[in-house]
Amino acid sequence: MAIIETEKLTYTYPGAEKTSIENISIKIEEGEFVLLTGPSGCGKTTLCRCFNGLIPHFYEGKLEGKIQVVGLDVVKHPIHELAKHVGLVFQNPENQLFALSVEKDVAFGLENLGIPRKEIRQRVDWALKTTDIYHLRERPPYELSGGQQQRVAIASVLAMQPEVMVLDEPTSFLDPLGAKRIFEDIHKLNKELGITIILVEHRLDLTAKYANRIIIMDNGKVILNGKPREILDSEKARLIGIGIPKVTRLYQFLNGKGMRLNYVPLSSEEMAKKLKEVFKQ
């Protein structure tokens, strides 16, 4: 069974005239790495809020259609119950860390669930080590760099041992190296722990290579949903105006001039490797 399944999901914020998402029907399988992208205001964030029940429990508004996550009907289960299965990481690290020490922040969710202290300690230490910030455990989060803060946010979600992790533009405020590290961490969580990842991101050049699926939204609707190489090479993706990686554009340019590589590269490493093969023949 799919780990996330929506059927004709439509939602309107309270007081809004227009729907924010419309007729979303998607299925995400366990262990997938899904990249969710599209122009600003296309409804990506709204969809993320449905995955852990912020919609309809925190934001009221009007929700129609069906949504099931880890076999639970989102409408019928409170956020704190869904939180055990779906972790959300937000864009601004500053506004999702509350405590005055890193470890206390990572423990926050577990404390809320009333987990015994000994187990909290174990899970906190595990999450800190997995995200490679164990050495920062006693530091106040606001003294850390943006990248470190975002890793704290990821650790604090990870400590709850969710099956699904949803990350909404987690690297917007980070510098390139900080962003790269975060993406590598997310990739690791997916590969090694088998956590299903939904990553909302504009920077496809840094992330497309990790994904096994890309979903593109525009105007509240899902426009494209499929394998990264096919999606990024499609005419439709170009027209919506998402940031197609430059190596993919280079591939398209060469293709158009008759140099057929027969392989859509998603990263510079892939492109360089392919070209080397061709030149060495």
């Binding site: 510098d175 390139p176 190296l177 790269k180 050049d205 990686p245 430059k246 190596v247 280079l250 990263s267 510079s268 490493e269 492109m271 360089a272 490797k273 070209l275 080397k276 030149f279």
Partner: peptide
């Protein structure tokens, strides 16, 4: 400065052998 070269540059740096 902890910056990564742009994509195209990274491809070309790899291809310098040619």
């Amino acid at each position: 400065a902890a910056i990564i070269p742009p994509e195209i540059s990274r491809v070309f740096l790899e291809l310098s052998e040619f």
